[in-house]
Structure formats: C-alpha cells, structure tokens
Computed example of a mutant assay.
Amino acid sequence: MTIHSYRIQLIAVRVIRAARELDLPIVALHSRDEADALHARMADEVVVLDGEGSGAFPDAAATVGAVVSAGCAAVHPGHGLLAENADFAQSCTGAGLTWVGPPLKVLRTLGDKTAQARLAAAPAVEAFLAGGCDDSDGVDLADVLGTRS
C-alpha cells in the first residue's frame, strides 16, 4: 500500500516517519515552489501540483486525480485547506482511497457554523471543555459528535 501525505510539512514529516516504521512508501504532493520542502525530500515519490504555495491545493479534483495517478491507496490530509473539507474527503473515498483523517460526519459538523454552535452548547462538550468530566462520568465525545460506530 502506498500512502499520500498532504502538504503541511510538520504533519507530513510525522506521517512519513510513521509510514517508514510500517514500511509504507510515501508520495508527497507539493506546489511548484516547494521542491525543497522537507516532506518532499523525505518522500519516495513526489507529485508537483500546478500553482504555487497553498494556491496549488484548493482544487480537490486535481489533488485526488494526482493521488490516484500516483497509485496511492490512502490519503492523510494533514492540516488545513482540504483537510477540513468534507467534500474532499468524500471525493477521496469515492475514488477508492482510504481516508486517514477525521470521519466525514465530523468534518460536515465542524464545517457548518450552525452545527458547530449546537455542538459547542451541548452539555457534554461544555463539561469536557471545562475539565469537569472524566471517564467515570460516562461522557464520550464520540457519542456527542454522533461518530460512534
């Protein structure tokens, strides 16, 4: 299995190191102006996206196409940009890629300001954020978010 690590370098470097421990090859995507980026130098293969800086990444279709063309089986989204985009995650899974990121339901909830406000006002979240609960309280954020499998 080949795994792709998204562009944000610190997270990408950590993903690459973890993949190395599992003997997984890494494909790194980077923009035209990031050829010397650490994650690109560490990867087994690189794919250069059209554009410069973060402007190279908002095109989800092009990013998924690049990942698929490189023969990857999974995508780690890193942080920011498309990593918080539920449609991008769905595009990845729709293309047969394994999404190594937050569950789609979490991305959809946290990407919707109204849903965020409802979630933040939930008593369990308020207790959790205030540090007023522990395992014995039976509060589980997976239940609050509705992500329990």
Rank of each mutant, 00 (worst) to 15 (best):
E126L: 07
V100H: 05
T93G: 04
W99A: 14
L129Y: 07
A86L: 04
G96F: 04
L104V: 15
Q90A: 13
T93E: 15
L129N: 10
K113R: 09
V125I: 04
A89L: 00
T109W: 14
L129M: 08
C92R: 10
G131S: 07
L97S: 09
L107C: 08
D87T: 01
L97Q: 09
G111P: 01
K113Y: 01
A115G: 02
A115L: 06
K105T: 14
T93W: 13
D112F: 01
G94M: 07
T98W: 12
L104C: 11
A127H: 10
L107F: 10
F128C: 05
P103H: 11
G132W: 14
L129F: 09
G96N: 12
R118Y: 04
L104R: 15
D87I: 00
G131E: 06
A130K: 11
R108M: 04
L104A: 13
G94H: 09
A117N: 07
A122R: 14
W99K: 13
G101V: 05
A89Q: 01
L107K: 12
L104Y: 13
A127Y: 09
G111Y: 09
L107W: 06
T93A: 12
T93M: 14
G101N: 03
Q90E: 14
A130D: 08
T114A: 03
G132N: 15
Q116D: 04
A115H: 05
L110Y: 11
A115Q: 05
L129G: 09
V100M: 06
A95K: 15
C92I: 11
P102Y: 05
F128N: 04
P103L: 09
T98E: 07
A117G: 09
L104W: 14
P102D: 11
G131Q: 10
T98K: 07
G131M: 11
A122L: 12
A124M: 01
L97C: 10
K113F: 03
N85F: 00
G96E: 05
K113L: 08
T114P: 02
L119S: 04
R108V: 03
K105Y: 11
K105L: 14
A130M: 11
N85D: 01
V106N: 12
K113S: 12
A122T: 13
T93V: 10
L110K: 03
A121S: 00
Q90G: 09
A86T: 03
A121F: 02
A130N: 06
C92Y: 09
S91V: 05
R118L: 01
A86S: 10
P103Y: 13
A86V: 03
V106P: 12
N85G: 02
A115K: 01
S91L: 12
L97G: 08
C92T: 12
A124W: 00
A95W: 15
W99E: 14
A115T: 01
D112T: 02
D87Q: 02
G96D: 10
A130T: 06
P123H: 08
P102K: 00
V125P: 00
G94T: 08
L119W: 02
S91T: 07
L97K: 13
A89C: 03
V106F: 14
K113G: 08
A122S: 12
A127M: 07
R108S: 05
S91M: 12
A95C: 14
S91F: 06
